[in-house]
Every structure is written in structure tokens, then in C-alpha cells.
Deep mutational scan, measured.
Amino acid sequence: MKHYEVEILDAKTREKLCFLDKVEPHATIAEIKNLFTKTHPQWYPARQSLRLDPKGKSLKDEDVLQKLPVGTTATLYFRDLGAQISWVTVFLTEYAGPLFIYLLFYFRVPFIYGHKYDFTSSRHTVVHLACICHSFHYIKRLLETLFVHRFSHGTMPLRNIFKNCTYYWGFAAWMAYYINHPLYTPPTYGAQQVKLALAIFVICQLGNFSIHMALRDLRPAGSKTRKIPYPTKNPFTWLFLLVSCPNYTYEVGSWIGFAIMTQCLPVALFSLVGFTQMTIWAKGKHRSYLKEFRDYPPLRMPIIPFLL
């Protein structure tokens, strides 16, 4: 059985960083990364991007050496992705923050609204209902991160945790300040508006959870398998008939419901920014589905049925 020789060059300087002799033909890129780490321990596998061309796409960890368009002496180019952190850690951090930050404003801890309001309670029912909904949303997200989601990528750049936390924590503080303010004004149409908004919120939260469970069942634990998601017997998953990412559709719907319930401008802005970002993600995933699966359902749109 022939063996391969693998040289790894710096993608920027073309400097030879490592030479691997007698590499098995069936070795994966993940195994080559581990061998590279032995000579350069500062670059652990998650930091490494190996590619066939200095400006090309990163090879997948599961790619097999003998199936790549290389000879028995293969040249790979290395790029440092920077310090990495696990997706689970990032999600837990960015979701735990809003949960606790919101509660600080809800309980009106000292130095927020003035001494005479310390630890007082709002007289408006919608304020307490909003706290329950907000807390439920982020507790749900935390539990899904721990027990439901299966991540195709193990890590992301460390800098992302600061960007994500600034976004989630900042908006949580902004909306919580106004919703729990002693001078907060309840919704214009009173109980009817709150009940309608609560119904929207609850339905969308159930829908979002149902989609996450359906997506989880598509991917076996520990794998990166991708399949076309289809509706199940659960009615909340029937939205798969019309959109590629109904989890985002339901998520946006939840925040629209919360915005109607609280009639709070920061919540509306958070919903708008979230919708914009999720639309970008949904379009990317939709394109990926179309590219990977020739039999992908043609009627589906990325996030909004028939429109977007």
C-alpha cells in the first residue's frame, strides 16, 4: 500500500511549517490536523484551516487524503483561524445574560430607577406577564442548547462571544429598562391586545421548539449528516411545506408577539434587527439546500412563505 507525503505551508508566506512522512492514504484531514498539532501545539485542530490552494476553501475534517486531487506528495496550505471557543459555551453565555439582566430590572434592584423604587413591584399585569415570557424564552434556549441542538461545527472564533453578548445583553437591558420602569405605560388596547400578543408568542414558541426537535431527529448524534427536513405529524412542522427555516419564522413571530404585548420600541427594534439577521441566515441555508439536494422542494422560500 502506497503512503503519502504531506507538506504543510503557510498560506500567506509559503513557508514550510511541517512535513509529514508515510501518511496513510485513508487518513482524514482531521487526522492530519492532529499530526500537525504534534509539531505545532500552539495551533490545536480547531484553529487550523487546511486547504489545497492558499486562497481556496477550507477542507472538511472528514475529507480523505486519497480522494483529494493531489499526488502522493501533497501540499496543503495552513491558515490560523485564531483562538476558538465551543458553540455550546457561546450559546449558554449569550442566553444566560439576558435572563439575569432582565430580572435585575424586573425586581428593580438599587441604583436603576431611584431609591424610592428599590425592590418595588409594578401594578401592571402586563409587566409581570412580559417577565414570565422573556424568562421562559431564554430558559427554553438554554435547555435546547444543552439537550436538543446538535452542532455541525464544534467551535467558533473567540471574538464572537463578545459580539454576541453585546447584542443580546445590550438589547435585554434596553428593553427591560423601559418595560419595568415605574412610569411604564400599558398597551393602548389593554387586555385584548395583551391576550392576542400572548397567543402569538406561545404559538410561536411551541412552533420553534417543534422545529428544533424535528431538525434534531434528522441528524444522528456525533454526525454531520444533512438531510432535507420534511413536515412530521406535528402540525407545527407543517411550515416546512413553505419555508426552509421555519425555526427562524417562529422565532421572529415570538418577538413580534412580545413587541405587541409590551408596546415597547426597543423590543420592536430588537425584532427588526433579529429578523434582518435571521433572513440572512435563512437565505444562506436555503441556497445550501438547493445546491446540495437536486430534489429539494421548489415551493419553499427561505423564511416567509411566498415572499422571502
Rank of each mutant, 00 (worst) to 15 (best):
K12R: 10
Y95P: 00
I211F: 03
T39V: 03
S271L: 10
L99N: 00
Y230W: 02
C245W: 05
R123T: 02
H128F: 11
P157F: 15
V243M: 06
R141F: 14
L142N: 14
D10C: 04
L50A: 03
D21K: 13
R123G: 14
F36S: 08
K224A: 06
R159W: 15
T93C: 00
T75V: 08
L142I: 04
T262R: 01
Q192A: 13
F100R: 01
K224G: 00
V127W: 04
N180C: 01
P98Q: 03
P187Y: 15
A221D: 13
A268T: 09
W174F: 12
V23K: 06
V70M: 06
Y189R: 14
P220F: 00
I200K: 15
C133Q: 10
F236A: 02
F209R: 15
P98S: 10
L146K: 06
V6A: 10
A221V: 11
K224M: 12
E144R: 00
P98W: 00
N164A: 04
E292C: 11
R51P: 07
Y296V: 01
L129R: 03
T13V: 05
A11E: 01
R108P: 09
H124N: 00
Y95Q: 11
K163R: 09
I211R: 00
V126E: 12
T237R: 13
L81G: 01
D118R: 04
L99M: 05
M175T: 10
Y95S: 05
Q66E: 02
G190F: 15
K291A: 00
H26L: 12
S254C: 05
L290E: 01
R294W: 06
P187T: 04
I139A: 08
Y44F: 05
T145G: 03
F236M: 00
Y289L: 04
F171N: 14
A259S: 06
R51G: 07
T232N: 08
P302R: 06
Y230I: 15
F100S: 09
S254E: 08
E31C: 13
G170N: 02
Y167C: 05
R108W: 12
A282D: 03
L104A: 05
I303N: 08
Q66D: 00
K2Q: 04
L104E: 08
C264W: 03
P235Q: 15
Y184A: 15
I101P: 04
F111A: 05
L52M: 09
I260Q: 03
G170P: 05
E5W: 00
F209S: 12
I112S: 04
D21C: 08
L143V: 01
R51I: 14
Q84S: 02
N34I: 01
L20R: 10
A172S: 09
Y44T: 10
A191S: 08
T185A: 12
L103N: 08
T237W: 00
K283Y: 14
I203D: 15
D10G: 10
Q48V: 03
K140M: 07
S152A: 14
H3L: 09
H124Q: 11
Y95K: 15
R141D: 14
Y296R: 03
L242W: 11
T125S: 10
V127S: 03
I228N: 12
L198F: 12
W87N: 03
K22R: 10
T145M: 09
A259P: 04
P229V: 15
L50M: 13
A11K: 12
S152P: 06
Y230Q: 01
G71V: 10
L196P: 10
A11F: 09
A268V: 11
L9G: 09
T125A: 07
H128G: 08
M156T: 06
I304A: 07
V90L: 13
H134K: 00
Q48Y: 07
T93P: 13
Q277P: 04
F201M: 11
E7N: 05
M175E: 04
D118G: 12
K16R: 11
N164P: 14
I203S: 09
G154K: 14
Y178R: 03
I101T: 09
S254L: 04
P231T: 04
V126M: 10
H137D: 00
P266S: 07
T75E: 14
M261I: 08
T28I: 10
W169P: 05
T75W: 01
V243S: 07
A214D: 01
A221E: 05
P186A: 15
R300D: 00
L104V: 12
S244Y: 03
A282T: 06
I8E: 08
L242Y: 13
P45F: 13
K163M: 04
L290W: 12
L65V: 08
K283S: 03
K285Y: 13
F293H: 14
K233P: 14
I32T: 11
L92S: 15
K55E: 07
P305R: 06
S49M: 06
D61V: 10
L299K: 11
L50R: 04
E24A: 00
D10R: 03
Y184Q: 15
S288N: 11
T155N: 03
H115W: 10
L92W: 15
H153A: 02
A46C: 02
P182L: 03
K224P: 13
A30C: 05
K195G: 15
E94Y: 01
G114V: 04
L81M: 03
C204H: 03
W281K: 14
K57L: 04
G222A: 13
K12P: 15
S254N: 01
F293R: 13
L142E: 15
L103W: 08
C245R: 06
L76M: 02
Q263H: 08
V23F: 10
S122N: 12
V6I: 00
Q84E: 04
G190L: 06
V202F: 15
S135M: 05
I8L: 04
D53G: 10
G114Y: 15
P98R: 03
T37N: 05
L196Q: 14
H115C: 00
G207A: 07
H40D: 08
V64D: 13
L290F: 14
D295S: 00
K233Q: 09
C131V: 00
H134C: 00
S58L: 05
L242S: 04
E94K: 03
V64Y: 15
T262D: 09
V109G: 12
G170D: 03
R219W: 05
Y167E: 15
V109L: 08
F111W: 06
E7F: 13
L20Q: 02
R141S: 01
Y4S: 04
A176T: 06
I256V: 10
Q42S: 05
E5D: 09
S58G: 14
N160K: 05
A30Y: 07
P54I: 01
L68I: 07
E15V: 07
R47G: 15
F105C: 12
V267P: 14
H153F: 06
Y167D: 04
E31W: 09
S121V: 01
P45H: 04
W43Q: 11
R216G: 07
E144A: 02
C18S: 08
K16C: 13
V6G: 04
H149I: 05
I179R: 00
Y230C: 11
L81V: 03
Y184D: 04
Y77Q: 05
T225D: 00
S135D: 04
Y248F: 12
P98K: 02
V127M: 07
L20M: 05
L59T: 15
S288R: 09
Q263K: 08
V202S: 02
V127Q: 00
W43Y: 02
V64F: 09
P69T: 05
Y230L: 12
W87Y: 05
A46L: 04
K22I: 03
T28C: 05
T262S: 14
N234P: 00
Q192T: 14
S223D: 01
N160V: 15
F209W: 00
T125M: 11
C204V: 15
N34R: 13
T232A: 10
H128N: 03
M175K: 10
S86D: 01
L76I: 00
D10K: 14
I29S: 05
I203V: 10
Y189L: 02
T225P: 11
R150K: 05
H115F: 14
E62R: 01
N34E: 11
V273S: 09
G190I: 14
V23M: 06
P157H: 02
V273M: 12
P41S: 11
G257D: 11
Y4C: 11
K22L: 10
C18H: 13
T93S: 12
R79M: 14
A27C: 01
I211Y: 12
N247H: 10
L52P: 07
C264N: 09
I260A: 06
G97V: 08
H286N: 06
I161N: 14
F119W: 00
L142T: 14
L265T: 00
C204Y: 03
L99I: 02
T237M: 05
A96N: 14
H128E: 13
V127P: 00
D63C: 13
